[in-house]
């Protein structure tokens, strides 16, 4: 019985430690997101070439959103197949929607 409680406690400690590790990662993710944001704003303030800045702004935004989804919203965890399907499906339709509206205006 005593052994049993001990192993339960060990397991608890293990999970607690794991959660703490993950929280550390989350803070690093947050710091990176802040850095990306600062890069994006400084690049615009610096008045660089439009064709050079816009693609980089998009890449920074997509990376930041991926961080948000995979780390803050835990999509990197097990059991997130359905959420991934929903988000990628949503993103695909979203892309088509924006493309359609832009093409309509171009011509």
């Amino acid at each position: 019985m005593a052994e049993n409680t001990n192993s339960v406690n060990n397991e608890l400690d293990y999970h607690k430690k794991k959660k703490k590790e993950e929280m550390k990662q989350q803070v690093i993710t947050f710091a990176l997101m802040i850095v990306f944001t600062i890069i994006a704003f400084t690049m615009v303030e610096a008045d660089l070439d439009k064709l050079f800045v816009i693609p980089i702004l998009f890449i920074l935004a997509i990376v930041q959103v991926a961080f948000q989804l995979y780390y803050f919203m835990h999509m990197s965890h097990k059991g997130h197949e359905m959420p991934s399907l929903m988000m990628y499906g949503g993103a695909a339709v979203a892309f088509l929607t924006v493309l359609t509206l832009l093409v309509l205006v171009w011509w």
């Binding site: 949503g90 993103a91 339709v93 929607t97």
Partner: peptide
């Protein structure tokens, strides 16, 4: 949330 993504995409477009 998947639906919301599309909703916001239409507003962005």
């Amino acid at each position: 949330l998947g639906g919301e993504t599309v909703l916001f995409a239409s507003l962005f477009g």
